[in-house]
Design a protein around this nucleic acid. Sequence first.
DNA 1: TTGCTCCTCACGTCACGTGAGGTGGC
DNA 2: TTGCTCCTCACGTCACGTGAGGTGGC
Lengths: 163, 163
Amino acid sequence: MKNKTGFDHDHLLKIGDFARLAGTNLRTLRYYEELGLLCPASRSAGGFRYYRSTDVNRLGMVQRLQELGLTLEAIRELMSARERGSNGGPTIASVRHALQAQDQLLAQRQALLAGERERLANALEKLHECAACNHRPEAANNFCEPCQLDGRALPRDLSALFS
Amino acid sequence: MKNKTGFDHDHLLKIGDFARLAGTNLRTLRYYEELGLLCPASRSAGGFRYYRSTDVNRLGMVQRLQELGLTLEAIRELMSARERGSNGGPTIASVRHALQAQDQLLAQRQALLAGERERLANALEKLHECAACNHRPEAANNFCEPCQLDGRALPRDLSALFS
DNA sequence: TTGCTCCTCACGTCACGTGAGGTGGC
DNA sequence: TTGCTCCTCACGTCACGTGAGGTGGC
């Protein structure tokens, strides 16, 4: 079960298999290793990277944090769980801190999205009124006469598309 | 009220003032013009860009769509409201379509975020159990003995941070 | 006229994409 | 041994960041 380098590669995946499992590609994995974000568990004598299958979970977290707009450097810091316990691994407290920080980011983003959807709904409602009106806003003025007279501003999301 | 180029620049903003108003910077505005995403309403004889203040709404929509991960090219297409009415402006139908497409993207993202928060909550709960246990998962095995015995896998979000 | 703002190159950066040319592993 | 996978450069791209050197506008 050991190869000639003396390292047991059972249960480890070559980069291609790991990439398929994780839904990413070779270039990205090599780049993440360069940044110290996700390193292979070992290398063969010929330089082949070998990954633990459980590291797909780590990669998944990186991907989800990227969707929130964090840079890879910020992600590395957030996931590094800086304090290390007596066994060399992260402490319970540091892991909790990292998870709570992520939850805060998610909650903030949720609030933004809810606000944006509400604005879109308002814009669509107003657009329904516009459909029954014989005026159209134009880029140059951003108001139609009827709305201008009663002081109702055009919703921003309509202004964005009519100009 | 007209300058020597014969163009009325009243109510128009120079790029710096527009950038401040919109919460962006000069380079970004020039780049968006290059892509045809947001063009100044006019130029002075000396080449100065002049923007309509209402175009901050258009820029805001670009920024919100960027946060959803769309490329600038995809944003340009989504906001171009391709069909144009008899007055040269976009039609009610094309604007409605663009707004509804955005709402779908937002709804999808909301669903993802809700799922992620649920997973984080599960991980934090499990972590609370771990705090009362004298084993710690390690990168090499991803399981502690007690959990391995009763077949409960480590939540992915914990695996991500313990390995 | 002074000073602040604007202009156009043009090179740098981040997070990869995409070959080129060569070698490892079952 | 064959063929598929992997390796390391290294240049390209997207969405800007950041000067350099020069000009416009009230």
